[in-house]
Design a protein around this nucleic acid. Structure first.
Lengths: 136, 136
DNA sequence: ATGATACTTGCATGATGGCGTCAGTAACCA
DNA sequence: TGGTTACTGACGCCATCATGCAAGTATCAT
């Protein structure tokens, strides 16, 4: 995952922004938005610690917000890839996708460490411009 | 970081929510809010890839938003611990705290993996109630 | 069929947040 | 001292979103 390559120091922020690197792809704001709400964080932690599929009704018992709010949050977390949903009959079973979640976090950490001065910096010659401005 | 312990399967989400574990502390919503905006993500990626302290003016040249917006975002990222700010004269130099950033991400990944079925589950007898409801 | 359970969806509301404009402050330069 | 540069802070506008309520749908039990 972390190739050993030559260090190439970027000159300016503009030139740095031009480079399309792993860190750009890994900084998925939709993913972070899903984790940026206190209620959702509580629900996610609950499901992670529970370690088994739970219904919306079960999870809602751990929260002071309305049932419909919990249902909406769980659906959002599932769409973000953080939870897995399976409908059986009239109940929906949600389970935390722990491996996928920690995998995404580690992938971003790796992508950042590639640029870290104390870490293994690399040759970015293969990276392409990620800037939306032509002259950048 | 990951102690080898006995597996204790939680019974219900309520009981799971009671347990105050590392994953609760690591799910810092303020931290994720800082990363949940596209403009901030772009600025952060720019600074990570640049690998050196940059002034607000420099970074603003990589973005289509107003200068004041960039200045606000950089200040927010610095307050979130993602950037480090140093004022010299009239210019503020921002640099990405890569090690701190990836460290936080890995710490959360570790905290999640502790509860992952395929990972090393553990004895949570030392964990305390994290629920805000008395009966929980 | 009747009722209960489990969830979804629409709507109103209040709060939060991103953005641009502009005025203000502080440091540097000539 | 006057002007420029670099940034900060105070608004106001607007979009998004979290929440609660209430109505609706689908499934299950009797």
């Amino acid at each position: 995952m972390m190739a050993s390559v030559t260090n190439k120091t970027p000159a300016t922020p503009r030139q740095a922004a031009r480079r399309q690197a792993a860190v750009d792809r890994r900084l998925d704001t939709e993913f972070f938005k899903a984790l940026a709400d206190p209620t959702r964080a509580r629900l996610l932690a609950c499901l992670v610690k529970c370690g088994r599929p739970c219904s919306v009704t079960e999870v809602a018992a751990c929260c002071d917000v309305d049932f419909s709010v919990v249902a909406r949050h769980l659906g959002l977390l599932a769409r973000a890839g953080v939870l897995e949903a399976e409908k059986k009959g009239r109940t929906v079973w949600y389970v935390a996708r722990c491996a996928a979640l920690s995998g995404r976090l580690r992938a971003l950490a790796d992508a950042i460490d590639e640029w870290c001065p104390s870490g293994g910096q690399g040759d970015r010659s293969g990276d392409r411009c990620g800037c939306d401005k032509g002259e950048c």
